[in-house]
Amino acid sequence: MKRLEEKIFKILMIGSTMLILSVLLYILFVIMKKGLPSLSWEMISQIPSGGFYLGKEGGILNAIMGSLYLIFFSVLISLMISVPVVMYLNFTLRRKSRLAAFARLTFDVLFGIPSIVYGAFGFTVMIFFGLQTSLLGGIIAISLLIIPVMIRSIDEVAILIPSELIEATKSLGATNYETIKVITRQLLPGISTAVLLSVGRGIGDAATVLFTAGYTDSIPTSLTQPAASLPLAIFFQLSSPVEEVQNRAYAAALILTIIILTLSFAARYFSRRLSKNKI
């Protein structure tokens, strides 16, 4: 009886593992099969001509550059917020501080908030300040989205810093700020992993940029112009009746996937390599 139950479950477990593995690999296969034929130099080096929805010529450079601009500035802003927050929670506030506990709960909740809500909120903020859909709006919304991701991810590593290290530094007469500078070195692998994670989350999200950054055929030259992005390039162009345009969507999907996979690989590589130099 005991054996039978174990046997049944073992079959179920192996079955579900195979199922999940094959579905996940099948997704990659489909994206590659659809995207590879349309991927060309023209695709990644030109902006669409004749309108992104109907024009048959051109590529998706507008979306690639837009996404890069959006994510670069968002990550920069998020770093300037997240790192100080984590340092404050872990190394400035006293241990077991109520504020720290409350802050962590808040960030957990913020982490769970759907991206569409950030998008909608970003949109109302923009209206409040009289902004049109623009690169700046997109940057604000994406920053809101990834700040909790970054904080949680750095915090996870910061908690592991031994209190001896803090005491060793402080007993040399270092101020709190100087102690934090030492700890930052120790946290660098954690921070780089957090950045890669946030880039992945931010660059792939469509709902935040839908209202805020908008979509355009051209590459933005200032913060107040709208910016295209890869997820929206996929979303909008996939629904076009023109086959060439749909192919642009598939190409964009493949590029986005490649970016994400590269980021994941890099994150794994980083956290493995850099942890060797940790104490």
């Binding site: 996940l24 659809k34 792939g204 997820p231 979303f235 996939l238 999907a253 994400i260």
Partner: peptide, 23 residues
């Protein structure tokens, strides 16, 4: 397996959407 899962947990929703409409 954990590498595969790690890699794929970052795939953005829009990609799942594309795959869903196709299959």
């Amino acid at each position: 397996f954990s590498s595969v899962v790690d890699l794929l947990s970052g795939i953005p929703p829009v990609i799942y959407g594309v795959w869903g409409t196709l299959t």
